[in-house]
Simulated scan of single mutants.
Amino acid sequence: MATDSKGAPSSNEENDEAFLHNCLYFTTNRLSRAITRMADEAFATTGLTPAYGYLIRLVIGKPGSTQKELSEKLYIAPSTLTRFIDKLENKGLVKRKVQGKTVLVYPTERGMELEQAVRQASRRLHDAYEAILGVEASDKLTYALESSSEKLEK
């Protein structure tokens, strides 16, 4: 390890690591891991992962949603959504109906029973990160990430 005359790390070593803290890729992945841990905790009581919880919430909110609509709303590939729906269908939480070339997704009665638990999990997650970040910072960060994502996707 290179040091200066006072034993502190040399500027080269600092620069070798500084890029991590100024890199959107690194910092968003770090944030993603942290928020995913929190979301997993919040959704543990539902028996669903957060992604499945948000999917079932969308289907309950708009029964008969198309797979295309759902994949666009969740920002996931259609093939990923198909796997998610397969899993929820195997658990008896959603059902698919084919209309021509379109696949519509509906909640089952069992799926509808999860609505309150999923809403509560969403609220727990929101409250947890808001308690850490504060209301204003939480809102600003969410807005900044949403608008940045839209710009980067173009």
Rank of each mutant, 00 (worst) to 15 (best):
I132G: 01
A77T: 15
K95G: 05
R37I: 01
E89A: 05
L88T: 13
L145R: 04
V118L: 09
A34M: 13
L152K: 00
E109P: 03
S32M: 06
N12Q: 15
H21Q: 10
A8W: 11
V105L: 01
F26S: 10
H126N: 12
Q99S: 09
E150Y: 11
G100F: 14
R96Q: 10
A18P: 01
F84C: 01
Q99W: 01
P50L: 03
Q120N: 10
T27A: 07
Y52H: 15
N12L: 14
Y143P: 00
T46I: 03
K91P: 02
K68T: 15
M1S: 14
Q99V: 08
L133V: 09
E113I: 08
V59G: 02
G92Y: 05
H21G: 08
A117C: 00
R96S: 13
F26W: 13
A44S: 10
G47H: 10
I35H: 01
S122N: 15
T28R: 11
K95Q: 15
K6M: 10
A42Y: 07
D16C: 00
A42V: 00
G53D: 04
Q120Y: 02
H126Y: 10
H21K: 03
G7R: 02
D4F: 05
L55M: 13
Q116F: 08
R123F: 15
T28V: 12
Y75L: 04
G61C: 12
E115H: 13
E109I: 05
A144S: 14
K87T: 15
E136I: 02
A51L: 11
R110Q: 15
A39H: 01
R119H: 10
H21R: 14
L70F: 00
V105C: 01
Y75W: 02
S138M: 10
L152V: 11
Y106W: 12
L55Y: 07
S79I: 06
A144C: 06
G53L: 05
H21L: 12
S147F: 13
A39L: 07
G134T: 14
G64E: 05
G92R: 04
Y106D: 04
D139Q: 11
H126Q: 06
V103C: 02
T102E: 04
Y25A: 11
T46R: 00
A2Q: 14
D127I: 10
D16R: 06
K6C: 07
L58W: 13
F84M: 14
G134H: 06
K101M: 13
T66E: 11
V59K: 07
T45W: 00
E17G: 13
E72S: 08
L114P: 05
L55H: 04
Y52G: 03
D40K: 06
A144W: 14
L20I: 08
G100Y: 08
E89C: 03
Q116I: 09
K6V: 09
